[in-house]
Amino acid sequence: MGSLTLANPVMPASGTFGYGEEFAGLFDLNRLGALVSKAVSTLPRHGNPPPRLVELKSALLNSIGLQNVGTQGFIEKKLPFLHDYSPPLIVNVVGDSVEEYREVVEALDPHERVSGFEINLSCPNVKKGLEYGTTCAGVERITSALRAGTRKPLWIKLSPNVSNPAELGKAAEGAGADAIVAINTLGGMVIDIEKRRPVLGARFGGVSGPAIKAVAMKVVWQLHEAVAVPIIGVGGITRTEDAIEFLMAGATAVQVGTANFVNPLTMIEVIEGMREWMGERGIKKIREIVGAAHG
């Protein structure tokens, strides 16, 4: 993964794994390829009004609104716990302006435990997040500003709610991104027909879960043809075969999101399942299958 070496290619998707503590009683976090934090902004955020979740067919609609403890809260309350674990720690960063993103990155950069940053340019649940994530100029601007603020790995997480995700990936790569994470949730909504109102307190939310896997797969495929930096595939992975499919589309690593809510051991099962799948076929290195479907 660029300058980062991961013991395996499986990690949580930001926002589905808290700051790790919540799952630590159920399995050993050291077995993960990396840890990815919930989004961190400069100041704590309250999040969106409830209801925040709607279950869909094989999918989930959420509008959490990036509720988080803020940078200082993260350093004081969450980082000490993460010191007890060895996988690289990627902090997901969010902001309302280039300056806010940069403030978070610069505040966390000196902390040795922080291995790198995943820049959330694509959350559909905040008004301004998407502004940077939907144009090549926006992506370039923020990526170069953050590149100047850290030498640690910088991953750019893309939105699928655009017409040209591969172009945005190229823009991020050109501005110094070390990896591209694709995809974030798809924008969506549900209406309560009796109340004649949107169900979510914030009206709109993001769709995740098994139903979006095919969408994510296409974006990863297109990115693989457009960029040379590693791609981290995310969207609807619930089992080993899903992860392998992402690798064959061009991902070097994968993130597991909504499935963590359903089966908290999904990531462990995928790690073991991939090892077994590869073993049975005499595949020794992940890179033997990365992009294999492109022929």
């Binding site: 919540e22 925040r52 959420n62 959490i64």
Partner: peptide, 17 residues
């Protein structure tokens, strides 16, 4: 009773005010 996600406190989906 609120619509719940993970049940572990991670997803922040089941909040009330």
């Amino acid at each position: 009773e609120v619509q719940m996600g993970c049940g572990l406190g991670a997803c922040l989906g089941c909040v009330y005010e």
